[in-house]
Every structure is written in C-alpha cells, then in structure tokens.
Design a binder for these strands. Structure first.
Length: 265
DNA sequence: ATGACCGATTGCATCGGA
C-alpha cells in the first residue's frame, strides 16, 4: 500500500491538481497539510467520489490537515494533545483497517517557527515550534506503546541535514535549520522512529519544497522538509519512498510535492 | 535581491508561508 504526504497549500486552490494526482497515483492513504479551510469548506464530495473516506481538521484561512483513505478510518483524533490552549489545526490521526491488519497514520503540519529573534527562547513563534515538537514526541511515545504499525507523515518544517538544502550556510540559523530544531527532531526520532528517507534513499538534493519566489524551482533551489517517520512495526514492512517532483511543474502547483511511502501492509 | 510568489481575507492592503 501507498501512504502519501502532501502540503497542498489550500485544498480549494489545489483541487484540480490534487484530484489529478490521486487519480494517477492512487495512494491508499493521503495525509494533506495546509488545507486552509474550515471542515465545511473542504471539497469532500469530489474526493469521496474517488473512493476515499475523508477526515479533516480544519480552521479558517490557515493551517488545517486532512486524511484521505481507501480503507476505513476509525479512532480519529483531531489536535495534538498536551496544550488545551493551542487552537491551531495541525494534527489529525486515525487507524486504517487494511486487509492485512491495521496501520495508524497521522497527518502533521509542524509549525514553521520563524522569525527567530536574537534571543531564540524569547521568540514566540519559535518557542511554539519547539513546544509543539516536545508535545509530538510525548504523544508519539504513547503511540509506540501499542507496538503496531504507525506512520507519522507530514510537513515537519525541519531540514534534517546540510545536504537537504541547496544552501546550508544560508539556511543555518533559520527556524527550519538550526541546532535547537535539529536537537528536537533527533529527540523525536530517538524514541524509536525510523525516517523512511534515511532507510531507503539518503541522497543529497532530494527536495520536497521550492519557494514560489526568485525562480527557486527553475534553479532547483529547494529544501527537503516533508518526512515520513515509522514505528518499528511499520518500517519492517516498508519497501521504499518516492518524491513526486513532477507535480511542481504543473499549472498552479503547490510549493510542496507529494512524498509517497510504499509498504507491505 | 524572500524586489521579482501565492493564497486567504472583506481587502481594495496585510499577513502568513519557508
């Protein structure tokens, strides 16, 4: 089965690109980020007509995540636990029942975190990012206790390695690529999660995002920030990862491209 | 040279994104 993650940068603006890609690629589960609409605004009927169960966690204007699945979804959780005052829609999780068993999947839109001010820990947006990563780690630790296939897929807004950007020196210090961010990302993985890209690819320069500005796409000035993290039970059944770079060429593309994990699940 | 983009909003500019 194929589990995909894609930051679509508005599902309404991207509906044609998304349906065309779903039709061509036929992922079994798609984790979407930045749907940028409330739940009622999501083009549910169009996606359901393609054979998907649709579960959303939206909000007005910004953020918003969704799960699309050809397998039935249950145990749906909206919102990341750990802060009742957090009203940003950045996390949705569910269990998909497949022919061979079950897999728990989350669609994650991790905060960007910029700007980082002179005092990083006095920067509201950056501390929100770090706190969110701490909460994600705590929640993932709970989920790992199930000892079942688990895939945490999404836009992590983390550049894991220097080879994941065209300009590591230029990016260093940004909220996506600085020591506190990498420490938090490592702390998340070190509870026992496996990054599919590390397991199955590992090459430098395999970007998932190109800015709309400055001819970034035309000059291949990208970054790799969309990731799939797996529990041991999921990585044991994983077969590969594919970055769908060609979607960045289309009419009205998202600035992110889909990343697809292949599994024997 | 993030000056040069894109999307959402009740707007006729501003904010957020990365």
């Amino acid at each position: 089965m194929k589990i995909a993650t894609w930051n679509v940068n508005s599902i309404k603006a991207r509906l044609h690109a998304v349906t065309a890609w779903l039709e061509a690629e036929q992922p079994d589960i798609a984790c979407l980020q930045e749907i940028k609409t409330v739940d009622d605004g999501f083009p549910r009927l169009e996606i359901e007509a393609m054979g998907y169960q649709v579960e959303t966690h939206g909000q007005k204007s910004y953020n918003g995540v969704a799960l699309l699945s050809k397998f039935p979804l249950e145990d749906i959780r909206r919102g990341l636990p750990g802060d009742d005052g957090d009203d940003q829609a950045r996390y949705i999780e569910a269990v998909a029942s497949t022919d061979k068993g079950a897999v728990r999947v989350a669609s994650i839109y991790l905060p960007n975190g910029n700007p980082v001010l002179e005092d990083p820990i006095a920067s509201p947006k950056y501390t929100y990012k770090l706190d969110w990563m701490t909460r994600l780690r705590a929640h993932a630790l709970d989920l790992l206790q199930h000892e079942e296939p688990l895939v945490l897929a999404g836009d992590y807004n983390v550049i894991p390695r220097p080879g994941d950007t065209h300009d590591p020196k230029g990016w260093w210090g940004d909220a996506l690529f600085r020591q506190e961010t990498l420490d938090a990302f490592h702390a998340l993985k070190h509870i026992g999660l496996y990054d599919m890209f590390d397991q199955f690819d590992g090459r430098d320069g395999q970007y998932t995002f190109w800015d709309y500005q400055g001819g970034a796409w035309q000059n291949n000035l990208g970054i790799r920030i969309d990731h799939l993290l797996c529990s041991p039970q999921a990585i044991d059944r994983a077969e590969g990862i594919t970055i769908h770079k060609s979607t960045r060429e289309g009419v009205k593309p998202s600035d992110h491209v889909p990343v697809v994990g292949h599994f024997d699940l």
